[in-house]
């Protein structure tokens, strides 16, 4: 298997995993929670390192999962104690992220984990960090981790498809009729944390945000169907990864950064030229940008 193949596969898996999961967050108006969790998993990873003294996959996933859920819990707590939700998100993630960065600067010399890496990832090194069992190499660890998380996410979404849809559309009605809304909420938070940490090595904590939010938002502009939206979001994630990779190789720049910019390119295209929601079509139809009263409440 060639070097380029593994990098592209990793990028596409990041796009697919984050795209599908993130689309749910966009619909639930929790995009900024995705932003927060992608920052704070850094603390989980550093924490896992302090406990195990190594940077292996499973402890990292567990640490990130715990901190991801803690982030959601803290935000919820602050919000219910009267702090505006966006400010609550702001406080929690900047604090935990800052803590993570400071801790890294203490251990940074001992391992291959520095701030630069945490922010941007280093997808170029992915092919060399292979999963080796009994001397046989089974391909890059990142690919295995991403594949596992993708599988888990897909299984969860399939199992709880109805519940996710109902609690997203009308949480109060869902609660009343007996959907375990809180469990679904934290299930999603776990999925986001896992997706984030599995992607972390390749694209870095911050640029995961782009993959989580932008493909979902783009798909939201292109379709009116829940199922299609999830699929489309994953596809846009993959396309962004591929386009970004091509650009990065052409100009010899950060692969993760290019992928983030590529998601933006797709978004702008959908925003302007989307068949139903695009600005151009709205201008032609003569409808203004102003929303109707009921949808802005």
């Amino acid at each position: 298997m060639s070097y380029t193949f593994w990098i592209l596969l990793t990028g596409c898996l990041v796009g697919l995993t984050c795209g599908i999961t993130g689309a749910l967050l966009v619909l639930r108006k929790m995009a900024m929670i995705a932003d927060a969790i992608s920052h704070t998993v850094l603390l989980g990873i550093v924490g896992a390192f302090f406990v195990t003294q190594s940077l292996s996959g499973i402890p990292m996933l567990i640490g990130a999962g715990i901190v991801g859920i803690l982030t959601a819990v803290f935000v919820e707590m602050l919000h219910s104690s009267g702090v505006q939700s966006d400010a609550a998100i702001g406080i929690v993630f900047t604090s935990l992220f800052a803590l993570g960065v400071v801790l890294i600067s203490f251990i940074g010399d001992q391992v291959h984990l520095d701030v630069q890496h945490a922010l941007m990832g280093e997808i170029a090194f992915v092919p060399w960090n292979t999963l080796t069992i009994n001397g046989v190499s089974y391909g890059p660890t990142a690919v295995w981790m991403l594949g596992a998380v993708l599988a888990v996410n897909l299984i969860l979404i399939t199992l709880f498809y109805k519940e996710i849809k109902m609690s997203t559309f009308d949480p109060q009605f869902a609660t009343l009729i007996g959907v375990p809304v809180m469990i679904i909420h934290y299930l999603l938070m776990t999925m986001v944390s896992l997706s984030t940490v599995a992607s972390f090595d390749s694209v870095g904590a911050i640029l995961v945000v782009a993959m989580l939010i932008v493909p979902g938002a783009t798909a939201y502009l292109l379709t009116d169907r829940f199922f299609v939206l999830l699929i489309l979001s994953g596809v846009i994630g993959i396309l962004s990864a591929a386009l970004g990779y091509g650009f990065a190789i052409q100009w010899n720049v950060s692969i993760a950064g290019s992928m983030a910019v590529a998601t933006g390119v797709f978004f702008i295209a959908a925003f302007l030229f989307g068949p139903k929601q695009g600005v151009v079509i709205k201008k032609i139809r003569g409808t203004t940008g102003k929303k109707t009263v009921q949808s802005s409440t």
Partner: peptide
């Protein structure tokens, strides 16, 4: 519930919303 309490931009159709009432 009050109509204004949900986001009507949610990607789904009328039949699907009605089916939500059959969850149990």
């Amino acid at each position: 519930p009050q109509r204004s309490e949900v986001d009507w931009d949610f990607p789904t159709n009328a039949l699907d919303v009605v089916l939500m009432g059959r969850y149990n």
